[in-house]
Design a protein around this nucleic acid. Structure first.
Lengths: 198, 198
DNA sequence: TCCGGTTTGTACCGATCGGTCAATACTCAT
DNA sequence: ATGAGTATTGACCGATCGGTACAAACCGGA
């Protein structure tokens, strides 16, 4: 093996991902992308093939990372506590300085996915994974009796997904953090007995 | 007045709006835009000034139209019936052949708004208008007793907005119509007494 | 030390980007 | 009929688009 790469593939993909995340696909030009990645054109095309290919890889990488973080966050917690942790973390992320980037999967869903089948597949899978985690948590909570067994777990999980999306949209469009907080609270109320509410 | 325009401004803006709506801002090139509008470059710049200006105008036009349709749809109906009509219409729109275009305001919110203050202002105003209509309907329902008076009207309106966003995202990312239907149903359940549910 | 194979930097590609402009087509008031 | 003044046209602009080609730089093995 005559010569090893002068840059770390994953690290470089990470930088690319952040750029796509912040600016979207179309608004990220090659020059901007290369500057962010810190490599030259030749290296880029040699290592990755095309802008679009890199986009898909960063999208996939993003989905995997978020999925991992979510699993980590909820591991070992009781259902409602796990959901609470999830929505609290999401709220913090939304109001943080980088919160304006929103969720890369959602950005992609609305900007790119409808005319890019491969991106659409990644988005669908990412959303489905997220929804399944929420669904499983609700089912588990119902099994232990934490959560009302009459609740439609599937529909509630979808509603929670909608609330997640709402939080992302409100925060990305520059709304009052209070609006985002309200949605997070509403998500928890969905799985909290009515008589326990303040 | 020496010569009148050979094309109808509003009609042409309409066509431009549909193109931006379907493809987003960045992915809509001038050539594509001009072809859709059916005019030449010179006429375009003479009449409108710039691509960006046209984008803002179509965005505003879209928001006004949707607001009008929404007011029309709910006029004279009782609160819950009005909400039902709203979410039913939204569902139909989502699963219709053009449903993949989603909501132009949301598309803009995630693609453009975070780096375009003027677009962001339009999005914020559009979302606020929509939310206010839902909010007012809920308040009215509570006044007449249709809707539980203990419900937090503001939070519920925001939740409904999130459900709207969820419906748009799910449908634009190519999901099963059933997912969209579920979210619409959940919206109505928010303002329906628990014991009246099936 | 030189060779084989790989990576890297950069010049360059045609296409297209959003936008300008001068010439032309046109209508109306005089 | 003519001149004022606007609308339209299409050639043209420099910049930038994503992508390619290729020579120089580099390394490990012989």
């Amino acid at each position: 093996m005559p010569w090893e790469k002068q840059f770390d593939i994953d690290e470089t993909l990470e930088k690319a991902g952040e750029t796509f995340w912040a600016h979207g696909y179309e608004a990220t030009s090659m020059s901007r992308l290369l500057k962010a990645m810190g490599i030259q054109k030749g290296s880029f095309y040699n290592a990755f093939g095309s802008k679009h290919e890199v986009y898909l890889r960063t999208l996939d990488q993003y989905a995997q990372q978020r999925l991992g973080e979510l699993r980590e966050l909820t591991r070992g917690k009781a259902a409602v506590a796990a959901l609470r942790a999830h929505f609290d973390a999401l709220y913090e992320d939304c109001i943080s300085p980088q919160g304006h980037r929103g969720c890369m999967l959602l950005n992609c869903a609305l900007e790119t996915a409808h005319q890019d089948r491969q991106a659409q597949a990644l988005v669908k899978k990412g959303l489905a994974n997220h929804e399944k985690i929420l669904h499983d948590l609700i089912l588990e909570g119902q099994k232990t009796g934490e959560i009302d067994r009459n609740l439609d777990a599937g529909a509630t999980a979808k509603t929670m997904m909608a609330l997640v999306m709402g939080m992302r949209v409100y925060s990305r469009s520059g709304s009052d953090p209070q609006a985002v907080r309200t949605l997070a609270d509403q998500a928890i109320r969905l799985v909290t007995p009515t008589d326990a509410r303040t």
